[in-house]
Design a protein around this nucleic acid. Structure first.
Lengths: 224, 224
DNA sequence: ACGTTGTTGGATCGTCGCTCCAACACGCTA
DNA sequence: TAGCGTGTTGGAGCGACGATCCAACAACGT
């Protein structure tokens, strides 16, 4: 583009897919997954449907792009540790933290697992497991298992967050409610769940998630 | 009309929550998750909204009830093996088969993980892990990890099934499409995923799932 | 015979994702 | 400078959804 500039990019601000995706992500972060509607987007961007659909294929495309942003930021940010085991833990906890901060990412990932963003995850996990000495015949099973575990937790997290969305009362009460319901169960018929209810109150989701990762890694070590 | 009967239970057939849930499950099985609409239900049952909403709280309640049916049928049907390890594998593969046959169950489970149906699963898994000798301090982490893995696979399966729903062309092509896309990737930048594409074509979802369960169980064994 | 109660069908509402198109802003050519 | 072409923009409108609401109805007790 010779010309000096083609600036003043049309109207006062100039829309773009980037901008739209950013606005969508903000909406999702601020008001939860159910708040992302095309209508809410048009008012937030003070524009119309046409403008949005000119840059974006459909709502799914929008959600996918926003999720991709978050996940790929995690994957490029992960420290490449010398120890593959530590690097795997770093990938896992990086994903957990991102999903914890943006529950809608968890929902999208467990709903649409062939997303481009997950490609980076698979590649990273597969490579690290390879570096860990997992034999090739088990490599795909192992990587799939680990990623599926992460996706399971992602979905769970998203569901919990959605359940909390209702109101402030619901927010703090939700986990306690489940715990209360569980501890009210007949201890003879449901001994495990009954005991689990106590743990539920004082447990740390992140720690439990990482404990699960460790269990998988221990199991993977036996494949060597 | 002295007694005799109070049969002819109101109208020609007589609606009930059971009947409605059954019809919903049929609809889901036959035409996929997106086909379950209240409107479709009313025409299938040749009734109106009022009748349905009289027996059912809302659409979520309906989905939950249908899912509960499937899952609890699985859990009561599982053979109580003497060997806890085998019993765990039986629970896992029972769930997998049910989700494979009814992908909407997978979607619902990964979306709403505090469902009553999952209570039975947690209880069973927790009890079996206990019987396996997992120390109490690790019991909840282990059970959570295993269940989350199953939920992750469940969501993945549901997503794949939904992607196939489109048409017959899409149905058979879907997995091959992913494999093709993956194998077209730069082998230098994505060595693992590139190799995985080959496996993808000939892999068996069920076998891979069970391999994951075995990895998990091997990891559990190290907790002893 | 008549109200009571529990059930039924469907009109209707508000909201959603999305399509479609007239109006516009700019850069190019003449 | 005038006009055209192209790429953008805003918003009216469509069909489908979940859900609510209510008039009509069927069986029973009295």
């Amino acid at each position: 583009m010779a010309k000096k500039t083609q600036r003043t990019p049309r109207r006062s601000d100039g829309l773009s897919k980037e901008l739209i995706v950013k606005a969508a992500a903000d909406l999702l972060d601020e008001r939860g997954e159910s708040a992302l509607t095309l209508r809410a987007l048009t008012t937030r961007l003070s524009t119309g449907y046409g403008a949005i659909y000119h840059h974006v294929e459909n709502k799914g495309d929008l959600l996918a792009a926003a999720t991709d942003d978050v996940v790929s930021r995690v994957m490029t940010g992960v420290v490449v540790d010398a120890d593959p085991r530590e690097a795997l833990r770093a990938v896992a906890s990086g994903l957990f933290d991102a999903i914890d901060a943006h529950p809608w990412v968890g929902a999208q990932l467990s709903r649409e697992p062939s997303m481009p963003a997950l490609l980076e995850v698979y590649e990273s996990v597969g490579g690290l497991l390879d570096a860990l000495g997992v034999p090739e015949r088990s490599l795909f099973d192992a990587a799939g298992a680990l990623v599926n575990y992460v996706l399971g937790v992602a979905g769970q997290n998203a569901a919990n967050a959605a359940a909390r969305d209702g109101g402030e009362a619901a927010r703090s009460a939700f986990l306690g409610d489940v715990a209360a319901r569980w501890s009210r169960l007949d201890p003879d018929r449901y001994p495990f769940v009954h005991k689990a209810a106590a743990h539920l109150r004082e447990h740390d989701d992140r720690e439990q998630f990482l404990a699960g990762v460790d269990i998988f890694l221990a199991g993977i070590a036996t494949l060597r």
